[in-house]
Nucleic acid binder design. Sequence first.
DNA 1: GTGAAAGCGCTAACAA
DNA 2: TTGTTAGCGCTTTCAC
Lengths: 306, 306
Amino acid sequence: MARKLNYVPNEMARSLRLQQSGVIGLVTRGLGYNWVEDILVGLLPVFDQAGYTPLISVNYWDGKRERRELDSLLQRRVEGIICLPMPYNRATYQDIMRRGIPLLFLADVLEDLTDVSYVLWDTRAATRVAVRHLIETGRRRIGFIGADHRTYWTRARYQAYEEVMREAGLQIHPEWIAWELFDFSLQARRKVESMVDRVFADPSHRPEALYVSTDALATLILDILTRRGIPVPGEVAIVGLGDLFMSDHSGISLTTVREPTQELGRLAAQTMLELIRQPGRGPIQHKIESNELIVRRSTQGRAGDL
Amino acid sequence: MARKLNYVPNEMARSLRLQQSGVIGLVTRGLGYNWVEDILVGLLPVFDQAGYTPLISVNYWDGKRERRELDSLLQRRVEGIICLPMPYNRATYQDIMRRGIPLLFLADVLEDLTDVSYVLWDTRAATRVAVRHLIETGRRRIGFIGADHRTYWTRARYQAYEEVMREAGLQIHPEWIAWELFDFSLQARRKVESMVDRVFADPSHRPEALYVSTDALATLILDILTRRGIPVPGEVAIVGLGDLFMSDHSGISLTTVREPTQELGRLAAQTMLELIRQPGRGPIQHKIESNELIVRRSTQGRAGDL
DNA sequence: GTGAAAGCGCTAACAA
DNA sequence: TTGTTAGCGCTTTCAC
């Protein structure tokens, strides 16, 4: 009879009555570079299984926009929020937690919010592997280019770089450090160009290798250097972080440390389900250690061969 | 007082009472290659302005999954659905329309569903520009590699290729045509490898140029050919379609015709709003003509120079 | 102006 | 087993 009348249950009414929406907010900065895609590959099967639907919200690195989106998620009575934390919205995150809504930071955390659940990849250890690889292949004059999002783990990458350099007895040249606040929105390219140009300003005093804090940025830098006539790895070796989907293309061929992105997605989903099922329990914090170095053309040869 | 009590309106109750959810489903095949990202750049501002929220659903080229997602959208009482049509779910699309829910096909259509609204890019005209560019740069032995999704516009690309070849009096060699049903899921690479290997099987009878029906595929083919020791553009020139975000990278540098993706997103959003505001009105069908050829390294030189 | 009440479509509890 | 009813939180209407 229901079929005959083309009946389709009304999920709004159902949710209202049940007092649960079955929706979990997934707050992202953008859908570029296949990162969210890979997260979803791990996350969706878990949510499907448990009957939850992710509501993907995009904020384009805009704090105000994120705030609006978070408000909207609260009004929709999402049962949990998975989000890449931005430093501007501390207060909102605290508000969400005070309301008892499970909040899970993905991929990064904020230093002063220590009681928030998180699922992330230990990029400090990965950075150590990456920088050590440069040193082991004979590079000494190693620069750093990275984004500082004012979050714990973007800073940890810089610190890990410093640490390894110190341990190896190598000097850190401030001229070769470009560590700035920026996002991957429209003006990103020009910003990165100015960072690269600063690092390579003095032809007689250039780094012979760069550690770049993410493959997205490293791929862009590779392009900029090529256009500037500075061959990679001929004059500069580059190592990135993440193994994004284009890094293994033969025209890019970037040495990197693989990020276990799908695993992060799966673990994030499972952790969120736990948080929902056990309200009032303390924060769950997962740090995945994974240091799979993938050597490609961008660090080929040894410094002496040049 | 509301603020004092930390009141947050309940959107489920509101939607139930208003009998409108303020949600529009956006059914995608995946979030890879920044295509959906670019669509959203055009679409979000329009929806924001009008107070609508997109609910992004991902089906990974799986017809069953799409059907489930569509059902779920119906239960959520979305006010409209924007979707990249898949041939398997004709019946569901018709069902959606019979229910009076605005349905908008994005980027492609199905041949027999002529009364559905759509917003798309005329890839027939774009293909003509691309193939003509190969001919104008002296190429005669031109092959075709493309995906056949059993949709109108993936077929139109093949037809446009044939058309231009015929007009130029060039012979079409079936050995150089690899036009198959496949998706961009996990096994895509191996499938494409076998397509490439078939086209290049006979070393004494190879194409000197390829038209590839999308940049995503062309980029992959570029990688495969390079690894097979077949230099591009040295032995084969390649032209793609779309100008995806990596096509201009100096390591890829793919000649292509730009797809007006953001414009598609904006127009799709506007069209959906019209459909919602004027229920019962006929289908709205927009075909964007845009043929901006971007010449890059992959078609550099002329055939005679080799 | 302010207040009360009906009802959106569902589920769960209870009654028959 | 089957039928009835209250109520989730909101908006709109109608009465005062």
